[in-house]
Amino acid sequence: MSGRERKLSDVLKRGYSDEELRHIYELGRFFLESGKVARAEKVFAGVTAVAPDHLPSWLGLANISILKNNLEAARGYAETARRVDKTSLPAALYLVTIMFALNELTSVGSLLGEVGDSIEGKSDVDPNLYRFYKMQLARFQGAITQ
């Protein structure tokens, strides 16, 4: 099989290019930031329907499920995001948040260890991601010393 065939199949996802999906996803993110949760959910669900490997949209669905306090659904979406890319740090941190809420501290510690190994000592880490990691780490340390 040629590389060109693989590339085309990667780019064309049921009629959408990667670029088109990125801009549609951005609308979902905009709706979420604007508090239009139901509209954001429709956008993210649509993107994952046509492109099941669109990791940011799975995070969007996990985010909305957390907002709705539907933690099992949130876990499912975040785990799907991790399956799409097992090295995704945002997906790992989403799972950390959900596991905390489910009081699964062993899993929280394991995930935080993975994230820490990936970002500690590096200078090019997204500041939001680093800050979120530090917050969750402090929370975890507080939880296990209680």
């Binding site: 670029e19 990125r22 801009h23 549609i24 996803y25 951005e26 609308l27 993110r29 905009f30 979420l32 930031e33 940011p56 995070l59 969007g60 985010n63 957390i66 945002p90 941190l93 989403y94 948040t97 939001n128 991601l129 800050r131 979120f132 917050m135």
Partner: peptide, 17 residues
């Protein structure tokens, strides 16, 4: 304001949409 949303990558543009 929304830490979890800030973790979601911003990869597109509404203007281009």
């Amino acid at each position: 304001q929304a830490p979890l949303t800030a973790l979601m990558p911003s990869v597109g543009s509404l203007e281009t949409l």
